[in-house]
Computed example of a mutant assay.
Amino acid sequence: MDAASHPNVPPLTGELVYRDATAADTDAIVALIESAYRGDSSRTGWTTEADILAGQRTDPRGVLDVIESPGSRLLAVERDGELVACCQLEHRGDVAYFGMFAVSPGTQGSGLGKQVMAVAERVAGETWGVGEMQMTVITVREELIAWYERRGYRRTGKLYPFPYGDERFGIPQRDDLEFELLVKRLG
Rank of each mutant, 00 (worst) to 15 (best):
V103S: 01
G113L: 05
G113A: 12
G99V: 13
E121D: 14
F98V: 10
E82C: 08
Q88L: 15
S72I: 10
R92Q: 10
A96D: 09
A124F: 06
E78P: 02
S72Q: 13
R122H: 14
S104G: 11
D80E: 15
Q108Y: 04
V116H: 03
M117C: 11
L74C: 05
L75C: 06
C86G: 07
R122G: 15
G109T: 14
H91S: 12
V103D: 00
F98G: 06
R73P: 05
Q88W: 02
M117E: 09
G93R: 02
G81C: 03
R73K: 11
F98S: 12
G109D: 07
S69F: 04
F101S: 08
V119N: 08
A124N: 13
L83R: 06
G111F: 02
Q108A: 04
A120D: 10
V95Y: 03
A120V: 05
H91N: 14
K114L: 07
E90M: 14
R79Q: 12
P70G: 11
A96C: 15
G99I: 08
V84P: 00
Q115G: 07
E126W: 01
R122E: 15
P70F: 09
G93P: 03
V103M: 01
S72L: 05
V95E: 10
G125S: 14
K114N: 08
H91K: 05
V116P: 00
Q108E: 15
Y97W: 13
V116I: 10
S110R: 08
A96Y: 03
E82H: 07
Q88M: 15
G99L: 10
A85Q: 01
P105V: 10
C87L: 06
M117G: 04
E121K: 07
G93L: 03
P70R: 12
H91A: 15
V103I: 14
E121G: 12
E68L: 12
G81T: 02
D94T: 15
